[in-house]
Design a protein around this nucleic acid. Structure first.
Lengths: 225, 225
DNA sequence: GACATGGATATTGTATACAAATGCCATCGG
DNA sequence: CCGATGGCATTTGTATACAATATCCATGTC
């Protein structure tokens, strides 16, 4: 992270995820270089990585811009993520070790603590969640699967969705993690796969519902103006 | 392709796929730059792309080398490819159009012609095969799925395997393509998914068998020396 | 003889200058 | 007024120089 190109990558990524750089915005290399306090060379490298992540797009004439995620793109990403994470869960269940299981339980305790408070600790929830999924990926033992999933998780949409989870949704998510842990403890790959599929697709529909609600609100607001 | 970085990418990629740069070989940027007739800047970009393709690896201290594919890596890649291409086939079947179907049939005719001759036209077979799978991916209509599969197809192993296909294997492969086409014509997603899974996994086992045979031959040769 | 240490050497990371291309806009002709 | 054309401004692509870092080998010490 101390290299200039890594700093540029993180900085630009954060600006995209936070919405500071809105979808469709042009990304001039010179301007980004100045923002990040580095030269164009590491910025170019960062842009190439972000392009691979599909966070930025590129016109036919090599101009880069913040990728615009249509609702179909989001559905697409969630579908693929469901398939890949489900496979990871199955493999993890088949390969589970006691130490890994202990770490998964610890991550779940973190999660559990984060949602106990009157006002849920969303950052804590996200940390525990990330850790949980990371351990599964590690136990699944497929570098390739990990690489593919890397481009699908922590997309803008995923983060923003989690932030507006209701307490009920957080509780439900935690319950699914507990059930997944049970499947892991029994080394039941089919069970783990099924729960994980459901876990991700439920998250998708939570997002889709919130998105529709936002759209409706926007329409009403327009009508009122 | 006219850009220096694209030329470098293709050149290095070909050297890896052809085995000219053997697995584990160090890839000095300076040396590659000279080989490709460009400066280090585009070479660096090419190496980053090849790293994303997992054709090259990187030590903890940023030195790049030709990735070494263990038999487990290959199995891993084929498994993922089977899952993803099967999903693409299902989506394609559900979204199939008549023009696309016509193009798929044309690709199959190319394939068919390539394996008719006494000595099969392997290059022609590979072209038809590539076209066939490309159309499916296009009709599937998921940019993300296409991006993920891009890193899994045309790996060194895949290419080398096809080149040593027997006539019987080529004929079998073609027959599966015909069956896939039938599934597409009927818009039967489940059927298409099942055939595609089988199609890829059969290719994997053809590779695995050939690999084992090679290993045995090597052992015997060693013993004879 | 094994191992640590130091510096020479090689390699990668970054900045900058310049070349090539693209986009923009004003001007001109219809 | 609309569209084409030419040239200026902006942006990206490449080469190169220099800085930072890692590797390697020789030397010295225990």
């Amino acid at each position: 992270m101390s290299r200039a190109s890594d700093r540029a990558y993180s900085a630009i990524r954060n600006m995209i995820l936070s919405g500071e750089l809105p979808a469709g915005a042009q990304l001039g290399e010179e301007a980004l270089a100045e923002m990040c306090g580095v030269s164009r060379t590491p910025v170019r490298e960062a842009l190439r990585r972000l392009e691979a992540d599909m966070l930025v797009g590129r016109t036919d004439t090599q101009r880069t811009f913040v990728a615009d995620w249509s609702i179909d793109d989001v559905a697409d990403a969630f579908e693929l993520r469901a398939m890949l994470e489900a496979r990871a869960a199955r493999r993890a269940a088949e390969r589970m070790t006691e130490p890994a299981l202990a770490r998964i339980r610890a991550a779940n305790r973190t999660l559990s603590a984060a949602i106990q408070h009157p006002s849920p600790d969303v950052a804590g929830f996200l940390d525990g969640n990330r850790e949980f999924h990371a351990i599964i990926l590690e136990v699944a033992g497929s570098r390739r699967l990990a690489a593919l999933l890397g481009t699908l998780i922590e997309q803008p949409v995923v983060l923003r969705t989690a932030r507006q989870y209701s307490r009920e949704e957080l509780r439900r998510s935690h319950a699914e993690h507990e059930e997944l842990t049970a499947a892991f403890a029994r080394r039941d790959g089919a069970w783990a796969e099924a729960i994980m599929t459901s876990h991700i697709l439920r998250a998708y529909h939570a997002y889709a519902d919130a998105h529709r609600a936002r759209l409706d609100a926007g329409t009403q607001q327009e009508a009122a103006e």
